[in-house]
Simulated scan of single mutants.
Amino acid sequence: MRRDDFTGPADLRAMQSMCSRLWSPTSRFHPGQLAWSRHHQPVPARGTTADEAISLWREGGDVVGFGWAEAPDWLEAQVDPAYPEVAEELVDWFEEWSDAAAQSVLVMEGDVLEPALLAAGFVPETDAPHFAHHVLDLAGLADVPSVEGYRYRHVEPLEAASRAACHAASWSDVSPSRLTTEAYAALMSAWPYRADLDWVAVDAAGEMVASCLVWLDPATGVGLVEPVGCVPAHRGRGLAGAVTLAALHRLRDVGGRLAVVSPRGDAGYPGPRRLYRSLGFRPVARTVTWHRSLTE
Score class of each variant (00 low, 15 high):
Arg2Leu: 12
Arg2Trp: 09
Thr7Asn: 11
Thr7His: 11
Thr7Gly: 14
Asp11Ser: 10
Leu12Ala: 10
Arg13Trp: 02
Met18Glu: 07
Leu22Ile: 08
Ser24Phe: 06
Pro25Cys: 06
Arg28Pro: 00
Arg28Gly: 00
Leu34Met: 11
Arg38Glu: 13
Arg38His: 14
His40Asn: 15
His40Tyr: 13
Gln41Leu: 13
Gln41His: 13
Pro42Gln: 08
Thr49Cys: 08
Asp51Thr: 14
Ile54Arg: 13
Leu56Lys: 12
Trp57Arg: 11
Trp57Cys: 10
Gly60Pro: 09
Gly61His: 11
Val63Ala: 13
Val63Asn: 11
Val63Pro: 12
Trp74Met: 12
Leu75Cys: 02
Val79Met: 07
Val79Gln: 04
Val79Gly: 01
Asp80Ser: 09
Ala82Arg: 15
Ala87Thr: 09
Glu88Met: 00
Asp92Glu: 15
Glu95Gly: 12
Ser98Trp: 07
Asp99Arg: 14
Ala102Leu: 03
Val105Ala: 15
Leu106Met: 12
Met108Leu: 11
Met108Glu: 13
Gly110Thr: 03
Val112Arg: 05
Glu114Leu: 01
Ala116Gln: 04
Phe122Ala: 01
Glu125Asp: 10
Ala128Val: 01
Ala128Gln: 03
His130Pro: 01
Ala132Met: 05
His133Lys: 12
His133Pro: 00
His134Thr: 12
Val135Met: 07
Val135Ile: 15
Asp137Tyr: 06
Gly140Glu: 09
Leu141Tyr: 09
Leu141Ala: 11
Leu141Asn: 11
Val144Trp: 05
Val147Ile: 15
Tyr152Thr: 07
Arg153Ala: 05
Val155Tyr: 01
Glu156Met: 12
Pro157His: 09
Pro157Trp: 06
Glu159Tyr: 03
Glu159Pro: 08
Ala160Gly: 08
Ser162Asn: 10
Arg163Ile: 07
Ala165Arg: 14
Cys166Thr: 14
His167Val: 11
Ala168Pro: 02
Trp171Phe: 15
Asp173Val: 03
Asp173Met: 03
Pro176Phe: 02
Ser177Asp: 10
Thr181Glu: 15
Thr181Trp: 00
Glu182Val: 12
Ala183Pro: 02
Ala185Glu: 14
Ala185Ser: 14
Leu187Ser: 03
Trp191Ser: 15
Trp191Thr: 15
Arg194Leu: 14
Leu197Cys: 10
Ala201Leu: 06
Val202Trp: 03
Asp203Tyr: 09
Gly206Asp: 07
Val209Arg: 05
Leu213Asn: 08
Leu216Lys: 04
Leu216Tyr: 02
Pro218Asp: 02
Pro218Met: 04
Ala219Thr: 13
Gly221Pro: 02
Val225Cys: 08
Pro227Ala: 08
Gly229Leu: 04
Pro232Val: 06
Gly236Thr: 05
Arg237Ser: 04
Val243His: 02
Val243Leu: 04
Leu248Gln: 04
Leu248Cys: 06
Arg250Lys: 12
Leu251Asn: 01
Arg252Ile: 00
Arg252Phe: 00
Arg252Gly: 01
Arg252Pro: 00
Gly255Pro: 03
Gly256Asp: 02
Gly256Ser: 04
Leu258Trp: 05
Ala259Gln: 01
Val260Ala: 08
Val260Met: 06
Val261Gln: 05
Asp266Ser: 06
Ala267Thr: 12
Tyr269Cys: 01
Tyr269Ile: 02
Pro270Asp: 10
Arg273Val: 00
Arg274Leu: 11
Arg277Ala: 10
Leu279Gln: 05
Gly280Pro: 08
Arg282Val: 15
Arg282Gly: 07
Pro283Tyr: 08
Pro283Ala: 09
Arg286Cys: 01
Arg286Asp: 03
His291Trp: 13
His291Asn: 03
Leu294Phe: 04
